[in-house]
Simulated scan of single mutants.
Amino acid sequence: MDQGLAAYYVGIGAFIGTLITAAVSYLAARHSANIAAKASAEQVANQATVERAQWIRQEQRQAYGDVIRAYSQLAHTLARLRVAIHDEAPTGELLDSIDVQQSLLHVACYNTRLFGPPVIADIVKPLAEAGREDAQAHRELGMHSMAGGSPQLAEIQGKVNASRREMGRAFTAFTDAASTVLLGGTEEAVEIRRRAGLER
C-alpha cells in the first residue's frame, strides 16, 4: 500500500506541477502578447508619423516647385517685354500675360502656407510683393514706351531695375529657405537663412 500511496502522491504532485506550469505559461504568453501588441501599435503609429511627414515633404516640394515655375514664367515674360521694348516690337500681348503670370506667382506663394513651415510663408510674402511691384514697374515701362517715350522713361527704367533686383533677392531668399526645409533643416535653420538673406 505504501507504493500505491506514493504513486498517488507523485501523481497529485505531477498534476499540481502541470497546473502551475500551465498557469505560468499562460501568464507568460499573455504578457508576451501584450508586449507584442504594444510594440505593434507603436510601430503602426511611428509608421503613420513617417508617412505623414513624407506626404507633407512631397506636398511642400510640389508647392515650392509651383512658386519656382511661376517666378520663372513671370521673369521670362518680363525679360521678353524688355527685349520687345528695346526692339520697338508690339508689347500688348506681353503686357496682358504679365497680369496673369503675376497672379499665378501670387497664388503659388499663397499656397505654400498650406504645408509650411510657417517661416516659409513669412519668406514668400516678400517674393509675392516683389513680383507684383516688378510687374507693375514693367507695365509702366511698357505703357510709356508704347506712348512713344516720355520724360519719365529714365525714372521708370530705374524703378524697373530696382524692382528686378528686389524680386531676384526675394526669390533667392525663398529658394534658400525652401531647400533648407526640403533637405531636412529645422525651422530655426530656415529663420537663420532668412535673416542672412535679408542682410544681403
Rank of each mutant, 00 (worst) to 15 (best):
V10M: 14
V67F: 01
R139D: 09
R80W: 00
Q47V: 14
R200C: 08
Q152F: 10
G131N: 03
L5G: 05
A33K: 07
A6T: 13
L81I: 02
V44L: 13
R61P: 02
A75T: 09
V83T: 15
H106V: 10
K38W: 11
E51C: 12
D134R: 03
S103F: 03
E93W: 05
D87V: 14
A173N: 01
L5M: 13
C109Q: 03
A189T: 14
T21S: 14
S145N: 03
Q136W: 02
R57G: 04
A108K: 05
D87S: 00
A63S: 01
L74Q: 04
D176E: 06
I35W: 06
I123F: 08
Q136V: 14
V107F: 05
D134E: 13
G131Q: 08
V107R: 10
A177W: 09
E42P: 05
G92F: 10
E59Q: 10
V160L: 01
M146V: 13
R169Q: 06
A189P: 14
E187G: 14
E155V: 04
S179D: 07
L198H: 01
Q60F: 08
A130V: 08
M167E: 12
A137N: 06
V83W: 12
R113Y: 12
S163I: 06
Q136N: 09
G11A: 12
F115A: 04
V50E: 15
T180Y: 03
R30Q: 12
A33E: 10
S72V: 01
A6C: 08
G11C: 09
L5I: 05
F171R: 12
Q58Y: 09
G184R: 04
I68S: 06
S72G: 15
R80N: 15
L19E: 04
S179L: 11
S40R: 15
G185A: 02
R195D: 14
A37N: 00
A39C: 14
G185P: 04
P118N: 15
A135Q: 08
T18P: 08
I56N: 13
D87P: 11
G65N: 11
G142L: 08
V50C: 07
T49K: 15
G131T: 01
A108L: 10
K38G: 07
L78H: 04
V24C: 02
R195W: 00
E155S: 15
A63H: 06
I12Q: 06
P117D: 03
N34G: 12
T77I: 01
V44G: 01
A137T: 11
A28H: 10
A53F: 02
W55D: 14
A108H: 02
D122Q: 15
L81C: 04
I12A: 10
T186D: 07
I120K: 00
H106I: 13
I156R: 05
G197M: 01
